[in-house]
């Protein structure tokens, strides 16, 4: 037991570079499996949470642009969604990584008039920034399509009622359209969030190098499986972690779903039907 505590102290934060530098080489214990894979899960959480957070705002903007009558707003949004939803995330990772590598290593000086900032481009080739950007763009495209679909299925009566009350423009959007859209989109958006967490496992298998062996949960699981040539320990542990992660996402999103639907009569509330991965 105390040996396991030592292992946790040494490897619990290994994935972010705190603790023992060298990974265990042989005679892996079950404790080491759990600790290192769990430590890698920190990266999955980092990528997933930030991508969903930033992607949410971007997706709202893109969905609004796609629903706009003006073609110069609509067309770019449609193309953005088409490109990111129509191609594999795996290819997007490779493509962006190669593009980031080709950017000048030094960075540019941008003169803003009042201040001069230096844009460092070398961080873009690191997973923590480069892969995060790809994930944000990807989830924005999928979420925007979900939000757009919800926007189009807002009951006409709701909008007419808003008009009758004299709500226009921003106020109508903020009070009526946006909350209704979010409520209608939420079950599908929950699936997208679950899928996003799953997609974070691709990062270190797609060009972005795991710098100093700081990788995500799947990176360490495959490290163990390669070293022991035994997939029956590391991958089930990883699966257990991810099922827990999926359940927590469902809990959080379910709570938000209940809040979004709290004004509706009991029988009209839409139950959150979880169909991960299937509806994208």
């Amino acid at each position: 037991m105390s040996a396991c505590l030592d292992t946790i102290a040494a490897y619990g934060l290994r994935s972010i570079g705190i603790g023992e530098r060298l990974l265990p080489k042989r005679d892996f214990t079950l404790c080491e499996h759990f600790t290192l894979i769990g430590s890698g899960l920190l990266w999955n959480l980092y990528f997933g949470i930030l991508a969903i957070l930033f992607g949410f705002f971007l997706a709202n903007a893109i969905a609004m642009a796609k629903a706009n009558r003006r073609w110069w707003l609509r067309k770019p949004a449609e193309w953005f969604i088409f490109v990111f939803r129509g191609s594999p995330l795996f290819i997007q990772f490779f493509l962006f990584y190669e593009a980031f590598v080709l950017l000048p290593k030094m960075g540019w000086d941008i003169d803003l008039g009042f201040a001069e900032i230096t844009v460092e481009t070398r961080w873009l080739t690191r997973a923590w920034l480069g892969a995060l950007i790809v994930l944000i763009l990807n989830t924005s495209a999928y979420s925007a399509e979900i939000f757009y679909g919800a926007l189009k299925s807002i009951p006409r009566g709701d909008i007419e009622a808003a008009d009758a009350y004299g709500l226009t423009g921003w106020k109508r959007y903020k009070r009526i359209i946006w909350p209704t859209m979010l409520r209608l989109a939420w079950p599908a958006y929950t699936n997208e969030a679950i899928f996003m967490f799953h997609a974070t496992t691709l990062v270190f298998f797609s060009g972005f190098p795991a710098w100093r062996q700081k990788g995500d949960a799947l990176y360490y699981a495959s490290y163990f499986a390669d070293k022991t040539f035994n997939p029956f320990v590391a991958y089930p542990i990883l699966a257990g972690y991810f099922i827990l992660l999926t359940l927590s996402v469902i809990t959080v999103y379910g709570a938000i779903n209940r809040r979004l639907n709290r004004h509706l009569p009991q029988e009209a509330r839409r139950k959150l039907r979880i169909r991960p991965n299937v509806i994208r």
Partner: peptide
């Protein structure tokens, strides 16, 4: 459905 598909790919092949 609860686990990333890529983990399954890596697992099942071995």
């Amino acid at each position: 459905r609860g686990v990333p598909d890529i983990a399954f790919f890596l697992f099942f092949v071995i």
